[in-house]
C-alpha cells in the first residue's frame, strides 16, 4: 500500500510517478497498464494543483494506492482539502473542441475503469479510481492503447 501526504507542488510529480511505476511493476501489472495508471494519477494530481489549490504549493494532497482482490486490480484515492466544488462541473471538454486544456479528466476516465468524485468528510474532494488487470484503455479508433 502507498499512503502519502504530499504538498500541492508539481515538483513532487516525478517522484510520485517513479514510486507508482515501481509499486505496480512489483505487483505484476503490464508496462502499458502501468503507463495508464501513472498518467491517470498524474492528471488527477495536476487537476488538484491547478483547479483545487489554484497553483498554491502549500496545500495538502493525500494519495492512497492499494491492491484489490475482487476484481484483481488497484484502487487509488486522491483527496484534497480545497474549498468544495460542484462535482458536476468536473468534466472533460468536448474532444471536437480543439483547444489547450480540459483534457485531464478525459484522460483519467479513459485510463481507469471506474472514476468517482465525492465530497470528502471534513471538506475537499475525494477522487477514487479503480482499474482491474483486465482493463486496457482504448483509442478513438477502438484500438487498444499503445503497448
Amino acid at each position: 500500500m502507498i499512503d502519502l501526504e504530499l504538498p500541492s507542488d508539481s515538483s513532487v510529480l516525478p517522484g510520485v510517478r517513479k514510486q507508482l511505476r515501481a509499486w505496480t511493476h512489483n505487483r505484476g501489472w503490464s508496462e502499458h497498464q502501468i503507463g495508464e495508471i501513472v498518467l491517470a494519477v498524474d492528471e488527477a494530481f495536476t487537476n488538484v494543483i491547478r483547479h483545487g489549490y489554484k497553483g498554491r504549493t502549500d496545500g495538502c494532497v493525500k494519495l492512497t494506492v492499494r491492491e484489490t482482490t475482487q476484481p484483481d486490480g488497484i484502487e487509488i484515492s486522491i483527496r484534497d482539502f480545497c474549498q468544495s466544488v460542484d462535482l458536476d462541473r468536473i468534466c472533460g471538454r468536448d474532444l471536437d473542441d480543439i483547444r489547450p486544456g480540459g483534457l485531464g479528466v478525459h484522460l483519467i476516465h479513459a485510463m481507469m475503469e471506474k472514476v468517482e468524485y465525492s465530497h470528502a468528510e471534513g471538506g475537499g474532494v475525494l477522487l477514487v479510481m479503480r482499474k482491474s488487470k483486465t482493463h486496457v484503455a482504448t483509442t478513438h479508433n477502438g484500438e487498444a492503447n499503445a503497448k
Binding site: 503507463g35 484522460l107 479513459a110
Partner: peptide
C-alpha cells in the same frame, strides 16, 4: 514514443 502517441490518440488530437 508509443506512450506519448497514445495520449494524442486518446484525446483524438492525432487527427489535428
Amino acid at each position: 514514443q508509443p506512450r506519448v502517441r497514445s495520449v494524442f490518440e486518446i484525446t483524438q488530437l492525432d487527427k489535428f
